[in-house]
């Protein structure tokens, strides 16, 4: 069973000619089949955690370890991490002019699976996955994220999640900027992947709204660069009622 283990992760970023520590010792274990929600106020370092795990060059790891099934993730390049089974659904997916969605998906699936998917089954696979996400077939011919609405971008991320079948999926504020209909469609996509029992999900969110659609097994409150409190789904209810104030004032630790 795949396991992502984060131990005492410390990350800095360069900003305005100064080095700033964003992650100050994060400990977290995500196992295949589990869903962890990471909730926290703006600026707490949630997205830094997501991008650091994926290997974004902007972030410098200054301490700690991250392993996937015992393999050192921090030693891997960005593409190696993806091929090892890590997937990051991005909050702000990037436009790639001149590259069609269909070409992108196939190139990506070829890289992740280690061989080109058989054309006939692949076309069917993509078509069906798109239908489930209420995506028009013409979508496949558009350039990656170019001119996509906020909802289209997020559907496209979840389409990739469904097709690439990672071991660990990190969803970085996938719910932000979505109306209720889009949120429901996107959440259903995430749930289909979760129901296979083959993915460990790290759901990063600012709002509790998405947790009505995607039920986490564990909820963690992220504040000031580390996990301030962990609990079950009831912790999300508490946050819903009380907000993050207890964690932002005076750096409370449970």
């Amino acid at each position: 069973m795949a396991t992502l283990e984060i131990r005492d992760l410390r990350v800095t970023v360069e900003a305005d000619n100064a080095t700033k520590e964003i992650l100050k010792g994060v400990d977290l274990t995500v196992k295949q089949g589990e869903t962890h929600a990471i909730m926290g106020p703006n600026g707490s370092g949630k997205s830094t955690l997501a991008y650091s795990l994926a290997g974004h060059p902007k972030y410098t790891i200054t301490g700690g370890t991250v392993t996937l099934d015992g393999e050192d993730v921090l030693e891997m390049s960005v593409d190696e991490r993806a091929r090892a089974g890590l997937f990051l659904a991005m909050q702000y997916p990037v436009e790639v002019p001149g590259v069609s969605v269909s070409n992108f998906l196939r190139t990506s699936a070829t890289a992740i699976r280690g061989e080109a998917p058989k054309l006939r089954t692949w076309v069917k696979e993509v078509k069906e996955a798109m239908e489930r996400l209420n995506m028009d077939p013409s979508f496949a011919e558009r350039n990656v994220n170019e001119g996509f609405s906020g909802g289209e971008k997020k559907r496209h991320e979840i389409l990739q999640l469904e097709l690439l079948k990672p071991k660990i999926a990190i969803l970085d504020e996938t719910d932000s900027g979505l109306d209720v209909d889009a949120l429901r469609v996107v959440s259903e996509g995430v749930n289909r992947v979760r129901e296979t029992g083959e993915v460990g999900t790290l759901l990063i969110t600012h709002y509790t709204r998405i947790l009505r659609y995607i039920k986490p097994d564990h909820v963690h409150v992220f504040a000031a660069g580390r996990i301030a409190e962990s609990g079950g789904p009831e912790l999300a209810d508490k946050l819903e009622a009380e907000g993050y104030e207890a964690y932002t004032k005076g750096g409370a630790s449970a």
Partner: peptide, 13 residues
Amino acid sequence: EQLFYLMARGIPE
């Protein structure tokens, strides 16, 4: 950022 996005989908640089 484009490079990161494509590589984050397993595509070598």
